[in-house]
C-alpha cells in the first residue's frame, strides 16, 4: 500500500527528530567546564570573591547589572558585601583584576551554556580603567 510507505517515513522522521540530542552528541565527550583560578584570585581576599561562590555562580550577572546601574546612574562606586567588606564596583578593575584569565574563567561556562553576555561589547579582556 502506498499509504504505509508514507506512514513509515513519518514515524522515522518523528523518531529521528525526537532522538536528535542523542545522535547529535554520540561519541562526543562533553564534560562540564572546569574553571581555572589565577594565582591572584586564590590569594587576594583569602581566595574569596565579593560574594559567596554559590551566589556568584548563579547570580553574578545580576550583581554586575546592579553595579552598572549604581555607577552609571547614581555615581556610587562602593559595594559593601554581606560581611561588611568594601569593593570598588568595576568589572575591569575589580572582577578582572583577579579573574584576568577571561578565556579560562568567563568564557568556558558562557560557551558551555551558550550565553553571549554583552559585557565584552565594551569591556575588553584586561584593561586598566583610568579614573
Amino acid at each position: 500500500m502506498s499509504e504505509k510507505k508514507w506512514i513509515i517515513a513519518g514515524v522515522v522522521i518523528f523518531v529521528t527528530v525526537v532522538a536528535f540530542p542523542f545522535w547529535f552528541n554520540l561519541g562526543k565527550a562533553a564534560p562540564a567546564p572546569e574553571l581555572e583560578l589565577t594565582e591572584k584570585a586564590k590569594e587576594l581576599n583569602h581566595g574569596k570573591c565579593v560574594m559567596p561562590t554559590d551566589y556568584m555562580q548563579s547570580e553574578h550577572m545580576q550583581l554586575l547589572d546592579l553595579w552598572r546601574h549604581s555607577v552609571v546612574r547614581n555615581a556610587k562606586r562602593t559595594f559593601v558585601n554581606s560581611s561588611g567588606q568594601e569593593f570598588n564596583m568595576s568589572l575591569s578593575n575589580t572582577c578582572l583584576e583577579c579573574h584576568s584569565n577571561k578565556a579560562e574563567f568567563c568564557d568556558r561556562c558562557h560557551d558551555y551554556a551558550s550565553v553571549r553576555p554583552y559585557c565584552w561589547d565594551c569591556h575588553i579582556d584586561t584593561p586598566k580603567e583610568t579614573e
Binding site: 542523542f22 565527550a29 562540564a32 554559590d54 548563579s58 561556562c109 558551555y112 551554556a113 550565553v115
Partner: peptide
C-alpha cells in the same frame, strides 16, 4: 536563579547516557 552549568551537566548526562546528579 539556578546554576545553569550544573543544569546542563545533568541534561548532557541524560543525552550521552552517562547520567549524573550535579551538586547544588
Amino acid at each position: 536563579k539556578i546554576d545553569v552549568v550544573a543544569a546542563k551537566e545533568l541534561t548532557m548526562g541524560l543525552v550521552s547516557f552517562h547520567p549524573t546528579i550535579p551538586e547544588g
